[in-house]
């Protein structure tokens, strides 16, 4: 299994390390040719304005958009959420977001929150994260913290406004790898497909 990581700006190396922890190979994607043969794509954390410019100048806007429509599993973390939300480059998920909605870095936090993916609290690192301000009916909510939706899935796309790649073990990483495996074996992903973990220490 090879999962691409958009590598124009942001925390690419942490996503690479995170995939390797799960025995999955990651491939940096900078140009359209790098997309050949990938079975999933991660949009890392970073600055969404910088990424937006670079995606456009690197000619990735259309080929990535085509792959998303063809069902390629895609995972957006933090800035990646902004690129995939309504009004973002790809507008693939029926949510609206407000960028950097929680204020400056002093408000960034590590929270142990509950999610639909695990019976035990999940560590969630929020770093100047965007806020999901509305979600359409097609959108499955996977986690909420303090009344805000922080993780969603719609079809082949997983979005987390926090950073599962910065912790040693997150059910969200496992969930995305599961989405890639099932797309690979041509299973139709169904809502709640990611198996709920039980009693696992985080």
């Amino acid at each position: 299994m090879v999962i691409g990581i958009l590598a124009l700006q942001g925390n690419v190396r942490e996503h690479m390390t995170n995939l390797n922890r799960h025995d999955v190979q990651g491939r940096p994607v900078r140009l359209p040719a790098d997309l050949a043969g990938i079975e999933g794509l991660i949009l890392p954390g970073g600055e969404s304005t910088a990424m937006r410019n670079l995606v456009s100048s690197s000619g990735l806007e259309k080929p990535v958009g085509d792959l998303i429509r063809q069902g390629l599993p895609v995972w957006g973390t933090c800035a990646g959420v902004v690129l995939l939300a309504r009004g973002g480059i790809w507008s693939s998920v029926d949510i609206t977001v407000e960028r950097n909605a929680y204020g400056s870095q002093v408000f960034s936090r590590l929270v142990h929150g509950s999610s639909a993916l695990s019976e035990t609290p999940t560590p969630m690192v929020f770093i100047r994260s965007p806020r999901i301000t509305s979600a359409g009916r097609e959108v499955e909510v996977l986690a909420e913290v303090g009344g805000d939706v922080v993780a969603v899935r719609q079809g082949n796309i997983l979005l987390t406004t926090f950073h599962p790649e910065l912790v040693d073990h997150s059910p969200f990483t496992a969930c995305f790898i599961e989405m890639v495996s099932s797309a690979r074996s041509d299973e139709t992903p169904v809502p709640g497909h990611c198996p709920k973990e039980t009693g696992r220490a985080v």
Partner: peptide, 17 residues
């Protein structure tokens, strides 16, 4: 240590920039 993760983390988001 949570503060360290979050603060080193912001710098990680700036990489390649």
């Amino acid at each position: 240590s949570e503060r360290i993760i979050v603060n080193r983390g912001l710098a990680q988001m700036l990489k390649g920039g």
